[in-house]
Design a protein around this nucleic acid. Structure first.
Lengths: 312, 312
DNA sequence: GCTTGACCTAAAACCCGTTTCAGAATTTAT
DNA sequence: ATAAATTCTGAAACGGGTTTTAGGTCAAGC
């Protein structure tokens, strides 16, 4: 528990000189440096991060807001964020929001309090306007298209690949398309985008009876298929929000000796590769990496990746 | 960016009185309190967490070391940790270790530096002896059985349910049992435990050709099944390290119109419920919650849950 | 009327670093 | 030889809180 003062006292130099040795800056006589370094080793001194943080005004922490962590979207995003943050010697704090605006606001207060230097919203309930008012307290990065607003963002441009996918589905002659989504389109930008692309291609809204929300994992896909079958909702194509979800649906049909409808997934997970299934790769790991870089640099820039429709 | 001094100046009281109002302790005249609270609202003041941390010696952060985050083991554990931490107003920092002792040591240094107050090792490469030498810098909780060592731990007692499961498998008459594991038994306590339980029941070591390691997700189970089939390794039971993994293996057999071997999974995920498959519930969410509670309280206690063999 | 205790507040010390400023000792340039 | 620039170091200020100490006011108890 030695502190910098003890090192100073022990060596006979001052705190400032010890600090200079620690930070390798300004002039320090080689002999002085050696003596102080020896003392640091001898007394097993490590600087106190809180004191450094207070003094320098930053803690090298990034707060990452995420609603839950059971969707591959978040898993891949987090992995990308972690990789980039780790590489830059930043740490990430996991901030569960459960899609609640009130909780998100509490986290923004923590940004003000300097609990972390910057934030990444993998998803946000709060309006972008509100987010902007907090930018003065630290970099805020969102993972959705912020439109023309001056907000740092790393996100995937989903529309082109969604349209391409629906064009392809239409060309194949499918007519009753089921949409599996994480959340309803009135609360989720992603779902909204999906639905809009659907309308753009098919010139009509998706069939409400073929929409299922609350879908995150393989098991949810399985349950959705079970629902369609038991409720007798005929369909010929399943557009899933993740490959694992599609795989789960497929599993249901196989297990019940039913004909498996055509389907596609998203995220280009291993399951779609194994099943030789069409998918959309949103390059989320890369999005995560760039979100972290923006959070660290503080640049109010937009990093946009084109998602990729993969036919197999 | 108002600080406590500004509130003091604005109201004419001293820093200490403002601090007392903030922390609701000691005597403060009602009128004084009102005035100061009004000033806090007016100047939109929030205390600086780094200054508070430095002054009080803790940041209310818990560092959570995890090798990767793609296995349900970690997902459930993290969810439990997050829930308990969040409830107690603690935050968690995700510390990826990739099973590297050197990285873990770096994190222990961060504990000394007060980057976080306490640590949870969901898995650790470093010896328990080494961990113990760092206990003086803050609570350290492991998620494995620490034996009789005085280390705080929240973990699942796996042996009884493993033995019960193997007894059951044996009673059913299965003889060629495949074991799917996250890591090899010489580096993983969990795998070692599994193998030992196997030997205890079958009086012989598991068949090396039926062991697959590096298995984490559904897709890995699928790949393992593909391996057994293409390499012509006959087996009649698959003991998987997770339900999703078993589900993946099952999927492979179904897709290739092969007879599906008997199998069981672990973690009691939805997939095993849907497939009506035997499993072992390690109650990881609960383990995570208790790990967080130990990390927060600093009690050097052991929280042990019995895992539960579920026949379906 | 005096002591005692409760109530209220401020000054100062403390937590532990970084950074600025200023001065002293050397070197280099002229 | 002297002025100027460089190298080295320490004192002090600063970041922004909490806590201790101590002193003052006031009412209750004897």
């Amino acid at each position: 528990m030695a502190n910098i003062q003890e090192i100073a006292d022990y060596t006979g130099f001052s705190k400032s000189t010890v600090s200079r040795v620690l930070n390798q800056k300004n002039y320090v006589a080689p002999r002085t440096r050696d003596l102080i370094e020896a003392a640091i080793v001898k007394l097993d001194y490590v600087p106190n991060a809180m004191a450094q943080g207070l003094s320098m005004g930053q803690m090298h922490n990034i707060g990452v807001v995420l609603p839950h962590n059971e969707h591959p979207y978040y898993t891949q995003l987090i992995n990308g964020i972690m990789a980039a943050a780790f590489a830059a010697n930043y740490r990430i704090m996991l901030l569960p929001s459960n899609y609640e605006a009130k909780v998100e606001l509490a986290y923004l207060q923590q940004l003000r309090r300097k609990v972390f230097d910057s934030m990444i919203f993998t998803s946000h309930e709060i309006s972008r306007q509100t987010l902007m008012t907090y930018q003065k307290y630290g970099p805020i990065v969102v993972c959705q298209d912020p439109g023309c607003l001056p907000i740092a963002a790393a996100y995937t441009a989903r529309v082109p690949s969604y349209v391409a996918a629906f064009e392809w589905i239409k060309a194949q002659g499918y007519q009753h398309i089921s949409l599996l989504a994480t959340r309803a389109s009135n609360v989720s930008a992603t779902s909204k985008t999906t639905f809009q692309a659907y309308e753009q291609v098919f010139h009509q809204a998706p069939e409400p009876t073929l929409i299922r929300t609350g879908i995150r994992k393989q098991q949810d896909g399985y349950a959705a298929a079970a629902y369609f079958v038991t409720q007798k909702r005929p369909l010929d194509f399943i557009f899933a929000n993740a490959d694992d979800v599609a795989a789960g649906a497929r599993q249901y049909y196989l297990e019940h000796d039913l004909p498996v409808p055509a389907m596609m997934g998203q995220e280009n997970q291993l399951s779609s590769q194994l099943l030789n299934m069409a998918t959309i790769d949103h390059h989320l790991y890369e999005v995560g990496e760039n979100a972290a870089k923006l959070a660290i640099s503080g640049a109010v820039r937009q990093f946009r990746v084109e998602s990729e429709f993969i036919v197999r």
